[in-house]
Every structure is written in C-alpha cells, then in structure tokens.
Lab assay of single mutants.
Amino acid sequence: DTCAICRVQVMDACLRCQAENKQEDCVVVWGECNHSFHNCCMSLWVKQNNRCPLCQ
C-alpha cells in the first residue's frame, strides 16, 4: 500500500522521517475509511483537512 498523502510505500518511512533520519519512528495509521497513511503525514493533513484525501 501507498500513503495516500505522500505517495511513499507505507512500509517505508515517509519523506519527512527520511529527511530527519527517523525511519524507525514512522508508523502506519488507518483512517475510518481503511486507507493507510504514515502518522506524520496524517498529523499534518488533519490540521488543514477533515476528510481522507482519497475519499474526498
């Protein structure tokens, strides 16, 4: 699966965690819609949006 926000494989660290060298801290979360995201990506997304980027 791919993170619906950053488009990186969810089993890999997101771009932000890769840049900050925090790959082991990058975890996967699932929305109520069952789409998967990196927690970092979702945390930033929900500050500006309240819907899944794929379900909009």
Rank of each mutant, 00 (worst) to 15 (best):
Q56N: 05
C41M: 02
C6S: 02
Q23D: 06
N34R: 07
H35V: 01
A19F: 03
T2N: 12
I5F: 06
S36V: 13
E20A: 11
V10M: 11
S43I: 04
N34T: 10
C33A: 03
G31Y: 05
C40N: 01
C52V: 03
T2Y: 14
C17A: 01
M42G: 05
Q9W: 04
C17N: 06
N50W: 04
M42L: 11
N39G: 13
K22F: 08
N49A: 11
V10E: 05
V29R: 15
S36Q: 14
R7F: 04
C33D: 01
C33W: 00
S43D: 10
Q23H: 13
C26T: 15
W30G: 15
T2M: 06
K47P: 07
G31S: 12
C3M: 04
R7M: 11
G31C: 07
P53G: 05
V29I: 11
I5E: 09
M42H: 11
C17F: 00
F37Q: 04
Q48V: 06
R16A: 10
N49S: 12
Q48A: 13
R7L: 09
H35C: 05
D1P: 01
Q18H: 08
N49Q: 11
Q56G: 11
V27G: 05
V8D: 12
D1L: 00
T2D: 01
L15R: 13
C52T: 03
C14M: 00
A19M: 06
A19T: 12
S36T: 08
F37P: 04
V10S: 08
V10G: 06
H38D: 01
D12Q: 05
Q56A: 04
R16M: 12
C33Y: 00
C6M: 00
V8E: 14
E32I: 04
N21W: 03
V10C: 11
A13G: 15
C40M: 01
E24V: 07
Q48S: 14
R16S: 13
E24N: 09
C40V: 02
Q48C: 06
K47Y: 05
C14R: 04
C14N: 03
Q56S: 06
N34Q: 09
N21M: 08
Q23K: 12
C55N: 03
D12C: 08
A13T: 08
C40A: 03
C3F: 00
C14Q: 04
L44W: 09
C17I: 03
F37N: 00
F37C: 04
V28M: 15
D25S: 05
K47Q: 06
N49Y: 07
V8L: 13
S43L: 05
M11K: 15
V28Q: 14
N34H: 10
R16V: 09
N39S: 10
V27T: 15
D25P: 06
Q9I: 03
P53V: 05
N21G: 11
S43V: 10
C26A: 10
N50Y: 10
C14E: 05
L44K: 12
R51P: 13
C3E: 00
R7G: 14
G31A: 08
E24S: 13
L44T: 14
C41E: 06
E32K: 08
C55M: 04
R16C: 14
M42K: 12
C41L: 00
C41S: 01
V8P: 04
R7W: 05
C52Q: 01
T2C: 02
L15F: 08
D12A: 10
L15T: 12
V28N: 13
D1K: 06
V10F: 11
I5Q: 05
C55Y: 03
I5P: 01
L15G: 14
A4K: 12
A13W: 02
K47R: 09
I5W: 09
V28R: 14
E32M: 03
C17L: 00
V29Q: 15
C26P: 15
K22E: 06
Q9G: 11
V27N: 09
C55P: 02
T2S: 07
L44D: 15
D25N: 06
K47F: 02
H38A: 01
C17S: 07
C6T: 01
D25L: 03
V29Y: 13
N50I: 07
S36W: 06
G31E: 15
C33F: 02
S36R: 15
E24G: 12
V28L: 10
C26D: 08
W30Y: 14
W30E: 15
M11T: 11
M42Q: 08
L44Y: 15
C6R: 01
K47H: 05
M42A: 15
Q48M: 09
W30C: 12
D25H: 12
F37E: 01
N50M: 07
W30T: 14
A4V: 06
H35A: 03
A19W: 03
Q56I: 02
C55R: 03
I5S: 08
P53Y: 07
M11S: 14
D12K: 04
V27A: 04
G31M: 08
Q48I: 15
N39W: 04
C6W: 02
C6P: 00
C14L: 00
R51F: 11
C26K: 14
A19V: 11
N34Y: 05
H35N: 02
C33L: 00
C26F: 11
D25Y: 03
V27Y: 15
I5K: 13
Q9D: 01
H38G: 01
Q9K: 05
Q56L: 10
M42V: 07
F37H: 04
C3W: 01
S36I: 09
M42T: 07
R51D: 14
W30A: 15
V46H: 08
L54D: 15
C3A: 01
C41V: 02
A13V: 10
C17G: 01
Q9L: 06
Q18S: 10
T2P: 08
C17V: 03
R51S: 14
C26W: 03
C6D: 01
H35Q: 01
N50V: 12
C3T: 01
N21K: 13
V27R: 14
D12W: 06
W30S: 15
N34A: 09
V29D: 15
L44M: 12
E24Q: 09
L15Y: 11
I5M: 09
E32A: 08
C40I: 01
